[in-house]
Amino acid sequence: MAGAIQDLTTVRQSTRPRRATEEGPLTRWTLTLLSAGFFTAFLLLPLGAVFAEGLRRGAGLYFRTFTDPATLDAIKLTLFTASIAVPANTLFGVAAAWAITRFEFRGKHFLSTLIDLPLWVSPVIAGLVYVLLFGSQGVLGPWLKAHHWRIIYATPGIVIATVFVTFPFVARGLIPLMQAQGSAEEEAALTLGARGWQVFLRVTLPKIKWGLLYGIILANARAMGEFGAVSVVSGHIRGLTNTVPLQIEILYNEYAFSAAFALASLLSLLALVTLGVKSYVEWRARQQLEQSQS
């Protein structure tokens, strides 16, 4: 029954008593305004501030930010990092979700907890563990040095740290979906003579595609925006190991505020696009789930 849903825009007849599950108009308006105030102060104004500060010195300077070689290098490195981390984690996410939702095995609970690890561990610690492993004083440091391999303060370190902070997203997007869908259709395909890969590509993949896309989008947003973990492993070598978020920090600390905010506005746009696509995909994924349950 849609009775609990109240329409703030409709004026009710004053003679009619309030429905049993309705708050008074004063309560409704107070709560709505409190919530709107919170949204404005914490979400809308910061978002507006990014674009306003970026454009403060005019559109010319705004666009000149994106012709600066160091900034362009940062954009390239960010794209490169995401282009490795996102596909790698997509592969991992699908494999992990398949193993967890389709089979019973010992240590499943542990595996599933481990997948959540990056969501609750501090990004600084995520960066720290790789410095302790690969850094010059790290566990593998001397061996890497002997082979003239550089991981920390170099691109590989950035990629690995990004892989770490983004690996839960695809698996987390798929596991509940695949659990709800069950494996009856896969079993049916097997009885019809389909082989392993055929089952996956022809039966499973079409069923999970929206959930998969959802995870990929979130992973991508985080991969391009990660700051803490990447900051720890990057060493901030200008033009060599700066991603876009790190470049924003450098510009900001050099008091190049307009440029910092111009670059930040690029990531904000990415965030808004991510939210838009996410809402759409969420809606499609829900439809797919409902279909599979009906």
Partner: peptide
């Protein structure tokens, strides 16, 4: 519980802190 214009947009924006890079949030 309530219906008002712009509700769906606000609902989508709730996730902004997940999607917005922390450095951008910091300077903003």
């Amino acid at each position: 519980r309530y219906r008002f214009p712009g509700r769906r947009i606000l609902d989508g924006l709730v996730d902004l802190p997940f999607a917005l890079p922390t450095a951008v949030a910091g300077i903003a």
